[in-house]
């Protein structure tokens, strides 16, 4: 599979909905260098289930993890997939990014399409305070059940700091 194949397929299917897309080519190997590719696309959250459905139907993706990036008034969520696994040099990382405003902090679940996403979705809920609509199990996973702070939200830093016990007094930066 080539990065153009997957990117063209997505552009044909979703067209103008894709707000950003780019391919990063990296060279690996010391004796006979070859390229490997990271593909990035950005879509509105409403299109996320359709995009993941299309990905599952066409490309048998592996979801590595969902990462978050607090940008101030919104958080970008990166769904890091890998497609084309199973063959030497066959794999391409395919990241679907969607930005979610903090004043309407919801994302649809993709666990109905890819059950393995549950761990990552539960983690995003507890660490960012986002609501994953339709999540089959919304309990805290890594944080205690009664913990309500969201440590990866930069605007809630003060609240997070209050809950951190300072073990090393001379280290002022770890909070």
């Amino acid at each position: 599979m080539t990065p153009d194949e997957i990117l063209t397929a997505f552009k044909e299917k979703f067209g103008a909905v894709i707000t950003d897309s780019h391919v990063v080519e990296r060279t690996v190997g010391t004796t006979a260098p070859r390229p490997v590719y990271d593909v990035w696309i950005e879509i509105p959250r409403a299109q996320l289930p359709a995009a993941v459905t299309y990905l599952c139907d066409r490309f048998s993706p592996h979801l590595s993890v969902i990462s978050g990036d607090d940008l101030g008034d919104m958080v970008a969520f990166n769904y890091h997939f890998a497609v084309g696994w199973g063959e030497r040099y066959g794999e391409i990382t395919f990241t679907i990014r969607t930005r979610v405003p903090k004043d309407d902090f919801h994302l649809p679940t993709i666990t109905g399409l890819l059950p393995g996403a549950l761990t990552s979705e539960r983690e995003k809920q507890e660490f960012y305070g986002i609501t994953i609509d339709g999540i089959p199990d919304g309990r805290n996973l890594f944080l205690p059940e009664d913990m309500t702070i969201h440590p990866w939200r930069k605007d809630l830093e003060e609240e997070t700091q209050k809950s951190v016990k300072r073990i090393v007094k001379w280290e002022e930066r770890d909070g």
């Binding site: 190997g29 199973g86 063959e87 030497r88 040099y89």
Partner: peptide
């Protein structure tokens, strides 16, 4: 499941070798 990053998307010296899952 023949999934192995060393095979699927080689890096470091793995890119110079024929590694299979």
């Amino acid at each position: 499941v023949k999934k192995d990053v060393r095979q699927d998307m080689p890096y470091l010296a793995y890119a110079d070798m024929d590694i299979r899952a």
